[in-house]
């Protein structure tokens, strides 16, 4: 399915005090794709996801979603983002946070989705619990729920599987597949290759801020572990 949605990284470079986070990286993603950025720590996965979300001022190049720079306000409502270092309104309850997101982002349109989402990710019992009393896994599930809320057209999940229980991962796989089926672009980062292999249609391997391999998982069977060993030499 291709409705013409496109996320485009064009010669993106990010410098952190003279060190390259990303180096002249170009890649295009079309709607319906679930792509994973893979690589050891520090290769620029999170930087790339942040650049896609418009959270980062890139040193060179641009990131655009259907021709619009992702830093622009008009793009933000189309993006669902889950960051690896989570921050929440800790003194609000689970329900209040989702209600607030629904209010700010969608003007209250997705009210019904809150309840169903809480049931889907087994958070309904904790709906009146304050965030600072949740376990790490529950916080991550809430973060996923927030990113997926309101059918965003670009979904960015930074290490979503980390700390999430088995039922949460099963639910996440189903939800991501459904999102891709309705035409959303999904970008994941992560280290658990089995999970990525099952969910993704495309895997992009990074090294020193550059793409070293771009593999489609649609056509042929690819051994991600073997490829990883080959590229990073057991790093």
């Amino acid at each position: 399915m291709n409705t013409g949605h496109e996320l485009s990284f064009e010669h993106v470079t990010k410098l952190y005090r003279g060190t390259y986070g990303i180096r002249d990286l170009s890649v295009k993603l079309t709607s319906g794709e679930i792509a994973a950025f893979i690589g050891p720590n520090g290769v620029g996965k999170t930087t790339l996801v942040k650049a896609a979300a418009g959270l980062l001022s890139v040193s060179g190049g641009s990131v655009s979603l259907w021709g619009r720079n992702t830093k622009e306000r008009s793009c933000r409502a189309e993006i669902g983002y889950m960051q690896s270092d989570m921050s929440f309104y800790e003194k609000m309850t689970v329900y209040e946070v989702l209600d607030f997101l629904n209010g700010v982002k969608f003007g209250g349109r997705y009210f019904a989705e809150i309840e169903s989402g809480l049931y889907r990710y087994h958070l309904h019992e904790q709906r009146n619990t304050r965030i600072n009393q949740l376990s790490l896994g529950m916080k991550r599930k809430l973060s996923i729920l927030m990113a997926l809320m309101g059918e965003p057209k670009l979904i960015l999940l930074d290490e979503p599987e980390s700390g999430v229980d088995t039922s949460g991962i099963i639910r996440l796989k189903a939800d991501l597949t459904a999102c891709a089926a309705r035409g959303a672009i999904v970008i994941l980062t992560g280290h658990v290759l089995d999970f990525l292999e099952k969910v993704c249609t495309r895997c992009i391997f990074l090294k020193d801020g550059r793409i070293v391999r771009d593999v489609s998982l649609k056509e042929k069977s690819v051994e991600l572990e073997a490829l990883y060993e080959e590229l990073y030499g057991g790093n």
Binding site: R73, S74, R76, I79, Y89, V104, K105, M146
Partner: peptide, 16 residues
């Protein structure tokens, strides 16, 4: 400080 630490909801919206 609270808003900037938990900025995500605003980033995800087109709140003017």
């Amino acid at each position: 400080r609270f808003e900037r630490r938990n900025f995500l909801i605003y980033y995800m919206s087109d709140y003017s």
